[in-house]
Nucleic acid binder design. Structure first.
Lengths: 208, 208
DNA sequence: GGTGCATCTTGACGGTTGTCCAAGAAAAGC
DNA sequence: GCTTTTCTTGGACAACCGTCAAGATGCACC
């Protein structure tokens, strides 16, 4: 093994470890953000939710903006493959619709704090241009996810979807957002209403 | 005039002046919030956007939460009668639809900063229960506004609306929110797309 | 013209923030 | 085992925060 190869291997190992720690700290940051929201989250609070002291954050991230941006990207990849198995395994329109709405309500109930963080960060992007690119990217990804599900549904029922991906996602997202607000306000029926509303919306996508 | 009447008149004048100044300061606060967002707005910054010094805020408001809550309520009443004249004057479905979408796009372009504040505060309500009541109230008010327009439209075309008020508002709001994000990101066609998307949605509300 | 009250300014307070840095601990290389 | 590099700590820093209170200012009323 040459000296160059050795150095390369060493530096790669270091890069891996570096990246791993970044992921770890970003995880602690995401947890803190989802509990407190963007406005009340400080670097010291994030460090307290990790195994390290507050100084280490500036060893792995240039500043707070880079940390938050990294968090948003990490959140994105976590969301990405959520619904893919449902699309892959569904054989009938019924099982696809049921699987989709079940998963939707499960995230509404179980991941409510993470989703309110998402809406918080998307609002921040309305003010802070440095967040905008990542937020638009995540929105586009969620849009594709919805589109995969609906176009698979269209395939199963042998129809064509009459609404473009962007407004379709916007409407589903609007329904989800209202459901989340009601869910966090303690309204028990939020999940059931969300299911009914989404199913009705899907019903209007295929004109006769 | 009796002494009691005099005192009453004086105290009423004082109350009026007190309320007027509260409105004035809340206006400066709303301007600051719409520029900086909730997370970056401080009392000193608000005072700098007014004719007074920062100490006066605690003369008219108990603390920051009361000020922000007052702002949200003031914002609500400003939004309230926005679309009423359109509903009142429209004689045909066409003029109603045109008037509504025109007004919608006008607020998207002209009042973009105020609307991003609204989405910011609604996100805050997901974390801060003290904001929740007012936010839910404003949402309910906007929901009624949309419902007035759509049910008037239904009346003009002689049909029945097939979607309840809550999910209808949620979907329109979702479309508006995506349009706002694109508008603030500099995409020129955001307004035109919003119009098309809203008109398509309205078209699906009346099944054959 | 002085008195009392409402209003407003100013400066201070304790606390928190993001950022930086010197120093020590840990790990790696030889 | 020693040196060098990497990693981590904890404190210092200036700036900013919400809040408060003492005093200045203006203004109506007797």
């Amino acid at each position: 093994m040459s000296t160059a190869e050795k150095l390369d291997r060493v530096s790669r190992r270091q890069v891996d470890k570096f990246e791993e720690r970044r992921r770890e700290l970003a995880g602690a940051a995401l947890q803190t953000l989802s509990e407190l929201g963007y406005a009340r989250t400080s670097l010291r609070e994030i460090a307290q939710n990790s195994a390290f002291s507050h100084g280490v954050l500036h060893y792995y991230f240039r500043d707070k903006v880079e940390l938050i941006t990294y968090c948003v990207r990490q959140y994105k990849t976590a969301c990405a493959q959520r619904y893919d198995t449902i699309v892959a395994t569904a054989e009938t329109p019924q099982t696809l619709a049921d699987g989709f709405t079940d998963a939707l309500i499960a995230t509404l109930v179980d991941d409510a704090t993470m989703h309110r963080l998402w809406y918080d960060l998307r609002s921040q992007a309305l003010f802070e241009p440095s967040f905008r690119e990542d937020v638009l990217e995540i929105d586009a990804m969620l849009e594709r996810m919805i589109w995969r599900i609906v176009s698979r549904y269209a395939e199963l029922v042998g129809r064509e979807v009459a609404v473009p991906p962007a407004p379709l996602y916007a409407m589903v997202d609007g329904l989800f957002q209202q459901a989340l607000l009601r869910q966090l306000a303690g309204q028990e029926q939020a999940g059931a209403e969300l299911r009914a509303n989404v199913l009705r919306l899907v019903g209007t996508l295929f004109p006769a």
